[in-house]
C-alpha cells in the first residue's frame, strides 16, 4: 500500500512525456470538449483514433489502458442497461413486459459507452505521462493570472505538493495504528456496516492527532528554511515550452475544429 501515489505516472521516454505539462492540461480540456461535441459515429471515431494514437506516441502499452478501464466497467454496464431499457425511441425492436428496446436506445447506449471509455482513457493519459510535481507546477502557472484577483494560487500549489508528499507517510502511519489497535484486540472485519464504521474511530482519532502534530512541526521546519509565501520565489526547474508543444497545439486545435464543423453538419 506504501506505493500508492495519486495518478500513478508511467515512466517512459516519449514525446508525450516531454511535452510541457501546461500544454498537456490544456490538451486534456480540449479533448473533453471535443468528446462531448462528438455526436455521430464519425466524430466519435475521430476521438477514438486520437486516443489510440496518443497512447502509441506515449509508448504506453495497451495492458495499462485495460487496467485503467477495469474500474469503470460497472458504471459502463449500468449506463448500458439504463439506456437500452429506458430510452424512449420510436423504432421498437423488442418488447418485454413494460420495457421496450428501441433502435435509438441501443444507439444512445453505444455512444454512452464509447464516451465513458474514451474520457477515462484520454484523461488518464495526462497523469500517466506527467509527474505530480510537473502537474502542480503547471497548475500554479496556469492559474497565475488569478493572483491579480488575490486568489492564493501559490498556496494552493504548495498544499497540493505537501499533500502528495504526505500520502505515503500517512498511509504508513495508518497501518501502524491499525496494527497497534489490532494488538489490543480491535476488530475491523466483522459486524455490520455501522459496527465497522465505529471500529474505524480508534484509527481516525490518533491519525488526526498525529497529522496535526506533523503539520505543526512541518510549519516550523518550513519557516526555518525561510518559507514566506510565494513572493520572490524562484524554482529549481522552470517550465519551458518549445516547438513540439506549439506543433501539438496546432494539431489539437485542428482536430477540435474538425469535430465541431462535422457536428454542425450533423455528420
Amino acid at each position: 500500500m506504501g506505493d500508492i501515489t495519486i495518478g500513478q505516472m508511467y515512466p517512459a521516454s516519449s514525446a508525450v512525456h516531454r511535452l510541457d505539462p501546461r500544454f498537456k492540461i490544456v490538451f486534456t480540456i480540449m479533448f473533453v470538449v471535443m468528446l462531448f461535441t462528438a455526436g455521430s459515429a464519425l466524430t466519435v471515431a475521430v476521438n477514438a483514433a486520437f486516443v489510440l494514437i496518443a497512447y502509441t506516441l506515449a509508448k504506453i502499452p495497451l495492458k495499462m489502458l485495460v487496467k485503467t478501464l477495469r474500474p469503470v466497467i460497472p458504471i459502463v454496464v449500468f449506463m448500458l442497461i439504463f439506456n437500452v431499457l429506458f430510452y424512449s425511441g420510436e423504432t421498437v425492436l423488442l418488447k418485454l413486459w413494460i420495457f421496450k428496446i428501441t433502435l435509438e436506445g441501443l444507439k444512445s447506449a453505444v455512444f454512452m459507452v464509447f464516451r465513458i471509455v474514451l474520457i477515462v482513457a484520454g484523461t488518464s493519459l495526462l497523469t500517466y505521462t506527467t509527474s505530480s510535481i510537473e502537474l502542480t507546477d503547471a497548475i500554479e502557472s496556469l492559474l497565475s493570472p488569478l493572483k491579480k484577483l488575490k486568489f492564493p494560487v501559490h498556496e494552493l500549489a504548495m498544499m497540493m505538493t505537501i499533500a502528495l508528499r504526505f500520502i505515503p507517510t500517512l498511509i504508513e502511519e495508518t497501518q501502524k495504528i491499525m496494527s497497534a489497535q489490532k494488538a489490543r484486540g480491535a476488530d475491523f472485519e466483522s459486524g455490520n456496516l455501522i459496527a465497522r464504521v465505529k471500529a474505524l474511530l480508534p484509527i481516525l482519532i490518533p491519525l488526526f492527532i498525529s497529522a496535526i502534530k506533523r503539520a505543526s512541526e512541518l510549519a516550523t521546519a518550513m519557516e526555518s528554511r525561510c518559507y514566506h509565501n510565494g513572493i520572490g520565489r524562484t524554482r529549481l526547474k522552470t517550465l519551458k515550452s518549445g516547438k513540439n508543444d506549439i506543433a501539438a497545439l496546432m494539431v489539437m486545435t485542428g482536430l477540435l475544429a474538425l469535430v465541431v464543423v462535422l457536428s454542425m453538419f450533423n455528420l
Partner: peptide, 21 residues
C-alpha cells in the same frame, strides 16, 4: 519525516534557495 517538503529529494534540497529567490 516532518521536515521534508517535496516529493523528490533534489526538489526538497532546493526548497530553501527557492524561497530565497
Amino acid at each position: 519525516d516532518n521536515q521534508i517538503v517535496a516529493t523528490v529529494v533534489e526538489e526538497d534540497v532546493a526548497f530553501a534557495p527557492e524561497n530565497l529567490g
